[in-house]
Amino acid sequence: MLKRKWIKLFLAFAVAVSGLPMAGTVPKVEAAAAPPYVLITEIMFNSKQPSGVSAEPYEYIEIYNNSNKTINLKDYPS
């Protein structure tokens, strides 16, 4: 009889500590994150020109505005 009591106590403690939802509780639903407005779609760095081409190597990033608003990149967080 005493053994059953300890088993019940242990199981109740294990469930409480493990963070499993108890019966009748509703799990918290997190709001979906907003999609990013500025997407980096291509990065070209340290480019090498084929042999015989006299043009300078170039570097660039391509960005896409994923919103319907004008975005000033001067103050855009990095």
Rank of each mutant, 00 (worst) to 15 (best):
V29I: 15
F45E: 14
P57S: 13
S18T: 05
Y60E: 13
N68D: 15
P36S: 07
I61V: 15
A33F: 09
Y58W: 07
M1K: 15
P36D: 03
N72L: 11
I7T: 12
S47G: 06
A23L: 14
T25W: 04
F45P: 01
T70F: 08
P36R: 04
Y76Q: 09
D75K: 08
A23Q: 05
K8D: 11
P27M: 13
L73Y: 05
K5D: 04
Y64E: 15
T25L: 08
V29W: 01
L73I: 06
P27V: 13
Y58P: 00
P77H: 03
S54H: 07
F10M: 12
K28A: 14
S18H: 02
N66M: 10
E42A: 08
T41C: 09
L9Q: 09
M22Y: 10
A33K: 15
N66D: 12
V38E: 03
I61L: 14
N46M: 13
L9K: 07
F45L: 11
P57H: 05
A55Y: 03
L20C: 05
Y60R: 11
P21M: 15
F45M: 14
L39S: 06
L39P: 06
M44W: 07
P21I: 10
E62D: 05
L20G: 10
S18E: 01
Q49N: 13
A14L: 15
L11F: 09
V26H: 02
V53R: 07
G19K: 01
V26R: 09
A12G: 08
R4Q: 14
I71V: 14
D75W: 00
Y58G: 02
A16V: 09
A16T: 08
E62I: 07
I7R: 00
E62L: 13
N68F: 08
P27N: 12
A32T: 15
M22D: 06
T41G: 01
A12L: 13
P57F: 06
P21W: 12
D75H: 14
S51P: 00
N46S: 10
K3S: 11
N72V: 06
L9I: 04
A32W: 01
V26W: 11
K69M: 03
A14H: 00
L9C: 12
E42D: 07
S18M: 11
S78T: 07
V38S: 03
